[in-house]
């Protein structure tokens, strides 16, 4: 772990980032003779203050300051409807600013030093090199609970087919998804040009095989790609409480997308429960206005899954479908609206 703090000497002459000296960004006391003296007034993460990078990268910083990775406003947006006006004010002050906002990514988290998650960081990504991208050491840390291990297969099941073909995060998620495009979006759902399967898979419904062609044509607009092509159970977190966190277990859930209530898709349990923010004295008067499940783009896609092999997996077996019996206990009343009663395929005489 100590290696995360060793700077690669060979970088110093070639990279203009170093020409102004360490103190230009990190402050501290270069003349200090002990660790403590040298680190007095040290700024560990200079890019937390966007002005540091803006000295040279003005355009990027301007858009990044409005991006979801920086504002983390999506986290607030996902829960805000549960609060009354007064409760929301208290939530913003005591939870969002103190807890959620602490999770924002600075420029350095992706380009210099891996972000710290739960107090642990890998330190410098590559001897203080300013790297363009290194998904396994950056994205994987913050998104290492759900997305990344599902993608690589570490969470169980099989790896995502795109991972096996050598694709990493930035092959689908574009630079503008990270740096922002200048718009202050409230949720990732609002982002124009967000990744979509159909960006690459443009010929759906024109396949040579009849079964594939029929499946794609019949389900288009009714079932999301994940609904059939998510290959295995994914991580669902339960009962999150401020300060103590949540518990997790694998699951596979199919139900109606809470955003439109008509498209069948993979759902993931949200760990927010009725007393999640009790420790901060924040209650949720309108808890039942949102369900306990959100639609989720599961990252363990395979061409063939149980549901692509047989129509019966869904139409007869109803495998993974959300039902009254499997709904989370003491959950939101809005959960009922996500249950989809799938019918058997009618047999024509």
């Amino acid at each position: 772990m100590y290696k995360g703090y060793v700077i690669d000497k060979t970088l110093l002459d070639g990279d203009p980032h170093f020409s102004r000296g360490c103190q230009s960004c990190h402050k501290g006391n270069a003349k200090g003779t002990t660790r403590e003296e040298a680190h007095r007034s040290l700024v560990k993460r200079p890019s937390d203050n966007l002005k540091t990078c803006a000295m040279c990268h003005r355009k990027i910083v301007d858009t990044y300051g409005k991006s979801l990775h920086y504002t983390t406003i999506g986290q607030r947006q996902g829960v805000m409807k549960r609060f009354s006006e007064t409760e929301l004010k208290a939530f913003d002050e005591k939870v969002f600013q103190q807890s959620c906002r602490s999770c924002h990514a600075s420029c350095g988290d992706c380009h210099v030093r891996g972000a710290a998650v739960g107090g642990i960081s890998i330190g410098l990504i590559k001897g203080h090199k300013f790297v363009k991208k290194d998904e396994g050491k950056t994205c994987a840390f913050c998104h290492g609970g759900r997305v990344y291990p599902e993608y690589t297969g570490e969470y169980g099941g099989r790896p995502d087919v795109h991972y096996q073909k050598g694709m990493l995060c930035m092959d689908c998620h574009k630079k503008s998804d990270m740096h922002g495009d200048g718009n202050a979006y409230l949720s990732k759902q609002d982002v124009k040009d967000r990744p979509a399967c159909t960006n690459c898979h443009t010929k759906l419904g024109q396949e040579a095989r009849l079964t594939v062609r029929t499946a794609h044509t019949r389900h288009r607009g009714k079932v999301t790609c994940y609904g059939c092509h998510a290959s295995a159970e994914y991580r669902n977190c339960y009962g999150c409480h401020l300060g103590t966190g949540a518990t997790a277990k694998p699951g596979f859930i199919l139900g109606l997308n809470p955003r439109d209530r008509k498209t069948l898709t993979t759902l993931r349990l949200i760990p927010t429960v009725r007393d999640s923010f009790e420790k901060a004295g924040v209650t949720m008067s309108n808890f039942d206005s949102l369900p306990n499940y959100w639609d989720t783009p599961v990252h363990n896609i395979r061409k063939r899954t149980d549901r692509t092999r047989s129509c019966d997996a869904c139409h007869t077996g109803k495998d993974g479908f959300l039902t009254k019996e499997v709904l989370v206990e003491q959950g939101s009343k809005a959960n009922d609206g996500l249950i989809y009663n799938i019918n058997p395929i009618p047999i024509n005489p």
């Binding site: 703090y5 360490c22 999770c103 960081s121």
Partner: peptide, 26 residues
């Protein structure tokens, strides 16, 4: 800064492992 931070031996000697706490969200 570079006297220490380019010397692996010194950094290894001075390194203090971070205290870890519960992770609130992933």
């Amino acid at each position: 800064c570079l006297t220490c931070h380019t010397n692996e031996k010194i950094i290894k000697m001075l390194y203090k492992p971070p205290a870890t706490g519960p992770s609130e969200g992933e």
